[in-house]
Design a protein around this nucleic acid. Structure first.
Lengths: 338, 338
DNA sequence: GTGAAAGCGCTAACAG
DNA sequence: CTGTTAGCGCTTTCAC
C-alpha cells in the first residue's frame, strides 16, 4: 500500500471539506468547478467549510482524473529579449485570464536538447503548447504531433507547421528594409546580424534584396546571439574604415543598432547623412535615443495574444481551421536615423 | 466509471511498456526512476520498449502517487526588468539541472490578487516556491507556511521571513549612494524613483542619508513602475530649471538614469560637472553609454542561483539552517557620470 | 532483482 | 440538484 505522506503538508482534502459541510465529495467538486450546478444554499455551506479549513484543491489529482491539467507549456529561447518578454507577458496574461497556468521554459539559443525539454514538458501533460520557431527536427515534430494537443508555433514561418502558427517572415522583413534603403537612393550597404536562425534570415532577406538591385554589401558579420550593445559598437568600429559614400546599415536587433549609432557618434560619423541605420524590434531604446532611430516594429504583445487566442479556441473544442495559421505583420517605423 | 479519454492523446502508458518488455509495471517505473536497482539486461529491454512505443511518462500520475511534483513555482513581478530576467534565467537553469521544472508566474506591479495567484500555484502542488518580496500580508504568509514546502523570498529583506531569504537591503543601497555623493562634496540632490515598494525604499535610504548630512533634496518625484527611459527624460526635463550648483541625482533604475542623461545632454547640462548621476541595476545600457554611467550593481544571476541552491538543499532533505537567510551584496560601479 | 496489491485525491458517468 | 461507483496512471510497501 502507499506509504505515509512524505510530509504533513496541507492534508486537508476534498473529502474533509465534504465531511465538514455534510455533503458528498462530488458536491464539493461541483462547487469548485461548476458552481451553477449546485444550489446556492449548499454552495454557501461548502464554501464556508473550504474557507474554514483553508482547503487548497489538488489539481494534480484533479488533472489525473479529468485528463485536463489546465496548464499550457511555452518554450521561448530567452526572456532577455524585450520582444519575447512582451510576448510571454501577454501570452501568460491571456491564458491566465482563461484559467490556464503557463509553464515557461527557456531553451537558450542553440537548440541543444530541445527534444528532451519538450519530452519533459509533455510528461506534465499540458493541455496545449507554444513553441518558438517552426523549423523542427523530425523527432520533435513527431513528438509534438503525437501528444495530441493543440500546438502553436510562433516567431517563424514554415510551409509545414505542426499545427497552428503565428509567424513572422523574417526574410521578407529583411527584404523590406533593403527596399526601404534602395528607395532612398542608397547603394552601399552593411548588415550586422546575430547568429541565430531568425536573425540570419533577416540578414539574408536584406542582402539578397540589395544585391539584386545592384547594391554593394560592404560587410555582413555574424555576431553572437543574443545581441548586445557592445557587439554593435565593435562591429561598427570594424566597419568604420570601409565607409566611403552613404551606407545603409541594417541591424538584426535594436541592441546592435544602438551600439552602432553610439560608436558612429564617437567616431564622428554622421547619422543619417553618412550612415543610415535601421534596427529591428522597436525597443524603447531606439525611440528615445538621440537621434531616435528607424526600426522594424513587430508587435510582441499581439503575437502573444493571438497565439493564446488560437490555443484557447481549440481548447474550447473548436476544430482546426485554415485561418489559424497567420503571418504577423511588421512595419518599418521611420525615424531620424535614416 | 470514468469516461472515455477526452481524446486519444498518447495513450501509451507504463503498463503498455511493461507488457511490451515482458516485465511488471513496477520494473518499468524503476528503470525510469532508479535505474541502478534494475539489472542492466532488464533495463535494456525496457528501454528498447520505451523507445519503440514512444512512451512519455505521466508525471501527473506519478506526482499524485509519490506526492512529489518535481516542479517549483516562482513568482516575479515582471521579466521586462533585466535584473529579474537574469535572475529567472539562472534560477530555472539551476533548477532544471537538478531535475525540477520551474513554473513561472508574473504578478505585475501592484500585488493585486497575489493571494489567488499563490493559491492557484499551490493547487499544482509544487515541491518548493520562490516569491519576490518579503513583506507579505498575513493570509499569504499563512498559506505559504501551511503549504509545508520550502519557500525562498528574494529581492527584499524582512525581519521575519516566511522561511528562507535571499534579500537585498534597498534602504541601505540608497544610503550608500547618498554617502558616495556626499564623499564627492556634493550637497544638492535629486532622486527619481518608481512607485514600487523596493524603488521607494532605495529612494528613502538615499534622501534620508543626504538630508541627515545637511544636504538639500531639490526633487524626488515618484514615477510609474516599471521604469522607462521616457519617464527618466521627462523627470529630467522637469528638474532642469531647478539646478543651480552641482547636483547628485540617484535614479531607482538604470532606465531612468539613461533617460535623464540623454535629456541632460539635449539640454546642454554637463554630466558629471553640473549633474552627477547614479543609476541602479547595472544594465548593459549604462556601461556602453557615452558617457558610461555610475550605477549600483546587484548580481541577479547570483540571487537566482543562490535561491535555487537553498531550495535544492532543502529538497534533498537538509533541515532549516541559520545561514539560509542571506543578504546579497551590492556595489557601486563608478563610471564617468559621477 | 522483481512482482503484486493498494491506493494518491480527484472527477466522469450514471442513478436517483 | 445530489450522491454513488469506478477508476485516471503511477509509486509505495511488502513479499518473494
Amino acid at each position: 500500500m502507499p506509504g505515509p505522506a512524505r510530509d504533513t503538508r496541507s492534508s486537508v482534502k476534498l473529502s474533509d471539506v465534504a465531511a465538514a459541510a455534510g455533503v458528498a465529495p462530488m458536491t464539493v467538486s461541483r462547487v469548485i468547478n461548476t458552481p451553477d450546478r449546485v444550489s446556492p444554499h449548499t454552495a454557501a455551506r461548502v464554501r464556508a467549510a473550504i474557507e474554514k479549513l483553508g482547503y487548497v484543491p489538488n489539481m494534480v489529482a484533479g488533472g489525473l482524473s479529468s485528463r485536463r491539467s489546465r496548464m499550457v507549456a511555452a518554450i521561448v529561447p530567452t526572456i532577455a529579449h524585450p520582444m519575447f518578454a512582451e510576448m510571454v507577458q501577454h501570452f501568460t496574461d491571456t491564458m491566465r485570464g482563461a484559467g490556464y497556468q503557463v509553464m515557461l521554459s527557456l531553451s537558450g539559443y542553440g537548440d541543444f536538447g530541445e527534444l528532451d525539454l519538450v519530452r519533459g514538458l509533455l510528461a506534465r501533460r499540458p493541455d496545449a503548447m507554444l513553441v518558438t520557431g517552426a523549423d523542427h527536427a523530425a523527432p520533435l515534430r513527431q513528438m509534438l504531433t503525437e501528444a495530441g494537443i493543440p500546438v502553436v508555433e510562433i516567431w517563424d514561418v514554415s510551409p509545414q507547421p505542426v499545427d497552428m502558427l503565428v509567424g513572422l517572415d523574417h526574410v521578407q522583413a529583411g527584404a523590406a528594409v533593403g527596399a526601404f534603403f534602395l528607395a532612398k537612393g542608397i547603394r552601399e550597404f552593411a548588415a550586422f546580424a546575430a547568429s541565430d536562425a531568425r536573425a540570419q534570415a533577416r540578414r539574408r532577406g536584406f542582402t539578397d534584396a540589395v544585391r539584386q538591385a545592384g547594391g554593394t554589401v560592404l560587410a555582413d558579420p555574424v555576431l553572437p546571439a543574443p545581441s548586445t550593445i557592445t557587439a554593435g559598437r565593435q562591429a561598427m568600429g570594424a566597419l568604420a574604415a570601409a565607409l566611403t559614400c552613404r551606407t545603409g546599415l541594417f541591424c538584426s536587433s535594436d541592441m546592435l543598432a544602438f551600439g552602432a549609432i553610439t560608436e558612429a557618434r564617437m567616431r564622428g560619423i554622421d547619422v543619417p547623412s553618412q550612415l543610415s541605420v535601421c534596427g529591428f524590434g522597436n525597443f524603447e531604446l531606439g525611440a528615445t535615443n538621440e537621434p531616435p532611430f528607424t526600426t522594424v516594429s513587430v508587435e510582441g504583445a499581439e503575437i502573444g495574444r493571438t497565439a493564446a487566442g488560437f490555443l484557447l479556441r481549440r481548447l474550447s473544442g473548436a476544430p482546426a481551421r485554415d485561418d489559424d495559421r497567420v503571418h504577423v505583420p511588421f512595419r518599418i517605423v521611420e525615424r531620424a536615423s535614416t
